[in-house]
């Protein structure tokens, strides 16, 4: 599995960055009542946050943790 080549902290950083970016977009979209803000949230915010959650969940299964590396 290719994702196994990444270290846990790298994956956590990517997931956190995507989620923070998605949440900032959600905050902006909530402050602006316009059809484009709904589109911004639905297409970009949801995508970034969803991707961040998926990457985090995938990391729990596939990514090598530093502790695991020490044991090996």
């Amino acid at each position: 599995m290719k994702i196994g080549m990444f270290r846990m902290d790298q994956v956590l950083r990517i997931a956190s960055a995507l989620i923070v970016l998605g949440l900032v977009i959600e905050l902006i979209s909530l402050a602006w009542i316009h059809p484009l803000s709904f589109t911004l949230f639905a297409f970009i915010g949801v995508l970034l946050i969803g991707l961040g959650i998926l990457i985090y969940l995938a990391s729990l299964i596939f990514v090598t943790s530093p502790r695991g590396e020490h044991r090996a």
Binding site: L23, E26, S37, F38, G52
Partner: peptide, 26 residues
């Protein structure tokens, strides 16, 4: 922080956006 809360924020965002889209000014 990376699973539960973002999922709740997504669900909440969808609900609030649906409510906002019912407003006359929208």
């Amino acid at each position: 922080a990376l699973c539960v809360l973002p999922a709740v924020c997504l669900r909440g965002g969808l609900t609030v956006h649906m409510q906002q889209s019912e407003q006359t000014k929208f």
